[in-house]
Design a binder for these strands. Structure first.
Lengths: 129, 129
DNA sequence: TCAGATAGGGATAAATTTATCCCATATTTG
DNA sequence: CAAATATGGGATAAATTTATCCCTATCTGA
């Protein structure tokens, strides 16, 4: 992994949840595992934008943080299944609320996000006329 | 800022909320502004681990995403106040839920996070004996 | 008059996270 | 036999985010 040089803060609840949930694909992994997509290859297909590598890395972290459990079946070709722990399941309502907020405000969010992205690229070209 | 080279995904609610909420201090900024700490210097004091620079950057993004509003008073020395927009206020219950989850599981989270950090640094030294 | 408070941002370095590429194993299918 | 499926991780490059340093401006109080 990577040994941090800047110490982590664990002062408040937001620090703590941030530590286990930051990571580009972690929330989706938890969500899809909860929906029953338990095998790495299934998760990979559900999240095609992520590389296999990074999904493995983030799955490992979720496991280290005891949000999911990994079962390796001793067969060939290999078979692996992830499941949410009881602890991990307590996050599902929260993830649901996050996704719902995003869906509820989809129009507005797409607008402001796009606007901002355009403003940045316009800024880069502002000296060209 | 930084013009992205990898395109942003805006496919689902989780993508959307991620776009506006990712950033090391954004959630805390929203929370403290909601608690009444509206001036940049107050926010800086509430979040001493963040540099002034990065707080400004993240405040700018929150403003661009219309989660907060900025009022500049034409006085000297300068005075600025941020407020949540109605849109921004809809995030408060969600942020509250995130923080509560972290607080509710504080013990366990501190344990697994610390364990993982130690495992990483141990791995780094595993060839030294 | 110098220190400190207030606010903002450019330039650049450092830290951290993701992406890419490649290799390994063994079975099943065409 | 070649190709596909399944899973995992080392090595390294690239992308992205944060941190540091420094400069600007004005007012207030010691």
């Amino acid at each position: 992994m990577y040994e941090r040089k800047i110490p982590v803060n664990l002062n408040c609840g937001l620090d703590l949840i941030g530590e286990v949930l930051y990571g580009k694909w972690k929330i989706r992994l938890l969500w899809f595992i909860n929906e029953g997509f338990q095998r790495p290859s299934e998760l990979q297909r559900k999240i095609p934008d992520a590389s296999r590598r990074i999904l493995n890395m983030q799955l490992n972290e979720l496991e280290a943080h005891e949000l999911i459990t990994k079962v390796i079946y001793p067969v060939l070709p290999p078979k692996v299944e992830y499941s949410l722990t009881e602890f991990g399941k307590t996050l599902i309502p929260i993830i649901g609320a996050l996704g719902k907020w995003g869906d509820d405000h989809e129009e507005h969010l797409k607008e402001v996000i796009t606007k901002r992205i355009n403003a940045i690229s316009a800024g880069k070209n502002s000296t060209i006329h």
